[in-house]
Nucleic acid binder design. Structure first.
Lengths: 193, 193
DNA sequence: CCAATACATTGAACTAGGACAAGAAATAAA
DNA sequence: TTTATTTCTTGTCCTAGTTCAATGTATTGG
């Protein structure tokens, strides 16, 4: 049951069975149906969720009412708005919503603190997770600025080969920062190579 | 001498005098003249630098040879390419270069490890720094995708009011992801409000 | 099973911003 | 100071991507 998440958390820092037992005892399992909004704009994000199964999106709504998807999270990824909410004590500006029926392991601020106090090595593991998120976001920023829409889409396909079969195309367009119509045109052009 | 950085590191986690003494003893002070490249693409980034004085930029070079500035760091900010280099053990894809004569306090991977082993609470402080960087980068990604060039420039002025006096205008354009010429046109338009 | 809704495609007209070029200002260097 | 180099501005033309609208195609749900 815990093997997926234990592999994930142990990827950059190794833990003994005792530490993993503490970790596993503090997480909460949660099954959530699709199209459930886990975090609304204006709320505090009080969870950090590991996706066991399913697909989630995190998005803003911009000044013109358009959704801009910041992140997709599928199996074995973490999703939260920790960067804004938990430590800054600001209400979040993003939504987090399930796209498919999902299963999660979740931490809340209290269980996470308890984890750190009982097994401080996890502090390091979460720091490294944070670094990885930063690296991914920075890469994404670079692509957004310096690649054409077609290049972005090709890069997306390489990075998330399974997603086009799982999520609506206009979500992908929103993630890439282009209009749904233009993505459609890119795809037809690519099809007749 | 250490008050700037001690205020910075103690902003989200408080440290006692002993812990700060360890911290201060492990950093290396470094003065660097302007236009010095601290990190070249393809190298490993082996430092984390706190800017005491001066201004630094971090940038990629894209497929067409254009520089894209990812970050400016001025007084009291941290700069590194930690996200890619240190833990991922990959060579960096970015350059880090001083724009003005600079003074830094620097950690390298060894002194940072020594810090964490002598005073583990710093692990948490660095995790929170990382979260803040992630928050800033995410905000920047959102702006890049969903604001017009003019809006981005106004937002930039609010966020970094002192920078236009300190760095070349085409650097700001590069940071905003627009051409230098277009930024110039935006500015003339704004001048005749 | 049909109706309703959400999703995808295509085309035509439009626009924000880019590329290029050439000159003006400012900084630096000598 | 004079010259050289870098930076900034302005204009013209051009294109990647948007917007809007119409049509078609899947999904969903009652």
């Amino acid at each position: 049951m815990h093997s997926q998440i234990n592999t994930n958390i142990g990827r950059y820092v190794s833990f003994d069975t005792n530490e993993l037992a503490i970790f596993n005892s503090l997480m909460e399992f949660k099954a959530v149906p699709k199209k459930t909004i886990l975090l609304h704009e204006g709320e505090m994000c009080n969870f950090e969720a590991f996706v066991i199964k399913g697909c989630v999106r995190k998005y803003y709504i911009d000044a013109n009412g358009f959704e801009v998807i910041l992140q997709f999270a599928i199996e074995n990824a973490w999703i939260s708005d920790i960067s804004f909410s938990i430590y800054e004590k600001n209400p979040s500006r993003v939504y987090i919503e399930t796209i498919e029926d999902c299963e999660f392991f979740m931490f809340n601020p209290e269980t996470k603190e308890e984890l750190f106090s009982k097994a401080p090595k996890f502090e390091r593991a979460f720091r490294i997770l944070m670094q990885r998120s930063l690296a991914v976001t920075q890469e994404r920023l670079f692509n957004t600025i310096s690649k054409t829409a077609t290049e972005k889409y090709i890069e997306f396909l390489e990075h998330y080969p399974a997603l086009p079969q799982r999520v609506a195309q206009h979500y992908i367009a929103s993630y890439l920062g282009i209009s749904a119509e233009f993505l459609s045109k890119i795809r037809t052009k690519m099809a007749k190579h």
